[in-house]
Design a protein around this nucleic acid. Structure first.
Lengths: 124, 124
DNA sequence: GTTGTTGCTTCGTTTTTCGAAGCCGCTATG
DNA sequence: CATAGCGGCTTCGAAAAACGAAGCAACAAC
């Protein structure tokens, strides 16, 4: 049927954002969260690996995002007691469930978002 | 249909986030952008209407987001010279193209994200 | 004329993010 | 053992973004 989760046109007189969308973007709306999720798409990865993959995020922020994502059960932190103890992050079921959506976003960007203004394309 | 836009496992030795996803979340990753887009889902809306719909965003930030979205051609600003001049914002084609993705996110949130901890349900 | 509405800007304060450095354990070198 | 590097995170100070309330201009209602 129609109205599943969209906005409510006039429930009490005024528009209202979809609460679910709001919840989702309370997480995804943070500067790097979606990117770390996307990076984990190809399988588990370590902290440094993620740090290099994302390119632009600082260690402090990455640690913060990872903690938040872990707390929200989107990512799972696994410790392998080597002896050279190593940590790896992976998507949880909840996190994996988000991948199709991230895929859509990515596809949209490919189709509708320019590769970036870059420097002068005709000059130089 | 192998690798379309995902991460590149080892192109030059290390993971790399999908650039398209990165571009997309350069916009969607800002605190309210996705919400204003979602609010416009049901049709054009005015500034105040949006302001009330989103609930939590301040005028200054909303104006900023709207300008950014407009600049990115996701939203279009229309001025109707009444005489009571009125302004309305609507999704552009590019913006509308994003709706299915936002839908996915929303559906995911409904299915995988709790309605929020809220106040303590059992504790005082 | 006063009050209320819409659309948006400006200013000062609080929250978030950034970026580099530091600590700890293990490995490789000398 | 001392030095040097890697990986995993944390701490600190600085910059950026978001907030929140007030203000300006135009229009409608009383």
């Amino acid at each position: 049927m129609a109205g599943s989760v969209r906005t409510t046109p006039d429930m009490d007189g005024c528009l209202r954002v979809d609460e679910a969308l709001s919840r989702a973007f309370h997480i995804l709306g943070k500067r790097w969260n979606a990117l770390v999720l996307g990076s984990l798409r190809g399988g588990p990865a370590g902290f440094r690996e993620l740090s290099r993959a994302i390119d632009g995020v600082s260690d402090s922020v990455l640690a913060d995002r990872l903690a938040e994502l872990t707390q929200n059960d989107l990512v799972r932190r696994s410790v392998d007691a080597g002896p050279p103890v190593s940590v790896s992050y992976a998507l949880t079921e909840r996190g994996e469930a988000l991948m199709p959506a991230l895929d859509e976003i990515s596809a949209w960007a490919v189709k509708h978002l320019p590769p970036e203004p870059a420097a002068s394309p005709s000059a130089g």
